[in-house]
Design a protein around this nucleic acid. Structure first.
Lengths: 157, 157
DNA sequence: AAATTTATGTCAGCCATATTGACGTATCTT
DNA sequence: AAGATACGTCAATATGGCTGACATAAATTT
C-alpha cells in the first residue's frame, strides 16, 4: 500500500486549491466558478457541452455558476458561426484578471515545490501526474492537454 | 504560468479520488466518510480533536459522518486512559476491510503511474508532493507524515 | 472545594454544490 | 416535415460544508 503517496496527494491538493479558495471567497465565488473560468480562459470559444464533459457535472449545476459569471461580466457568450445553437464562451478582461491572479498563486506554489528538484525532475513530475489520469475515453479538452503536452494558443502567457 | 501542471493536478486528483468514489457509492458513503476512516485507520487511537485539525472541518460536519461510521460499525470509540474525556477512535475489522479496499484501488493507480518512471524518480515525486504542502503550523498528524516520511505503526501492511 | 478550562456531543438553521427528470426552444440534419 | 442536437430552465432532493449556542463530563487551576 502506498499510504505515503495517498496522503501526500491529499494534503498537497488541499493546500494547492486552498490558495485559490482564499481569494475566491472575497469575490463570493467558489471552486466551481474557478474551474469554469479557468477552462474558458484556457480554451477560448469553448462550448457549453465541452465544459460539461471536462468538469463532469450536470447542465443544471453548471447553469447557476455560469450565469453568475456571465451576469457579473467575467465571461461572455457568442453565438457560434457555423452552428448558431452553440454559445461559445470567452473570458472578458475582468475574467482574465481573476484567473491570472489565481493561477499566479498556484504557479508560485508549484515553482516553490519544484525549486528543490533537479531540472529533469520536473519532467518526472509531469510524467507521473499525466500517468495518474484515466486515458480511456478522454474528452476533447483532456485529449488536447494529454496529447500536445497541454499546448494551446494561450501558452505563451 | 504553470498551466500544464495546474491542469494535470486537477485531472490527476479527479481520477485519483474517483476510484474510491465509485466504491463508496455502493456503501452509501461519500468522500467525507473515506477521509475519516482513512485517518482513523492510519493513526489508531486518534482523538476527535486531532481529526478536526487534519480534516479542517467543524465539529458539526464531522459529527454527522462520524456518527454514521460508528452506527454502522466501521469505527469504535474507547474512552482515553489518561484523560477520560477523550474518545479515542479505532477502525473495526469491517472498517479496515473497506479502507484497505479503497487504498488498494488508489495504490494500483499510483503503481501504474510510477511504473513508467525510473526508481529514483519515485523519490522526486514524493519530494514534489511534500513541498507542495504548507509547512507552517502543521497539525500533529501532518507533522508525523511530513516528519518521519509518514511512518506509523501501520506501515508494514 | 470551587471555579475554570477542555473534550466532546448536539440542536437549529443556513449555504454551496451537486444530483435526476422533465420540458421548452431554437437550430441543424436528414 | 421529422428528428436530433445544443442549450436553458423548472422543481425537488442530497451531501457536506458552515455558524452560533448550549450541555455534560472530566481535568486543571485557583
Amino acid at each position: 500500500m502506498r499510504w505515503d503517496i495517498i496522503e501526500l496527494l491529499f494534503f498537497a491538493y488541499r493546500d494547492f486549491v486552498g490558495d485559490a479558495d482564499n481569494v475566491l471567497e472575497a469575490f463570493g465565488f467558489g471552486r466551481a466558478h474557478h474551474r469554469v473560468l479557468h477552462f474558458v480562459h484556457r480554451f477560448p470559444g469553448l462550448k457549453v457541452a465541452d465544459l460539461l464533459d471536462v468538469l463532469r457535472i450536470t447542465k443544471q449545476s453548471l447553469g447557476r455558476v455560469l450565469k453568475q459569471l456571465l451576469d457579473e461580466g467575467y465571461i461572455v457568450q457568442r453565438t457560434g458561426n457555423n452552428d448558431r445553437r452553440q454559445r461559445l464562451l470567452y473570458a472578458t478582461a475582468k475574467g482574465e484578471a481573476l484567473v491570472g491572479r489565481l493561477a499566479g498563486l498556484q504557479t508560485d506554489r508549484i515553482n516553490r515545490a519544484l525549486s528543490g528538484i533537479a531540472p529533469d525532475g520536473v519532467e518526472t513530475v509531469r510524467q507521473f501526474l499525466r500517468a495518474m489520469i484515466d486515458h480511456d475515453d478522454p474528452d476533447k479538452v483532456l485529449a488536447t492537454i494529454l496529447g500536445s503536452g497541454g499546448a494551446t494558443a494561450k501558452d505563451k502567457s
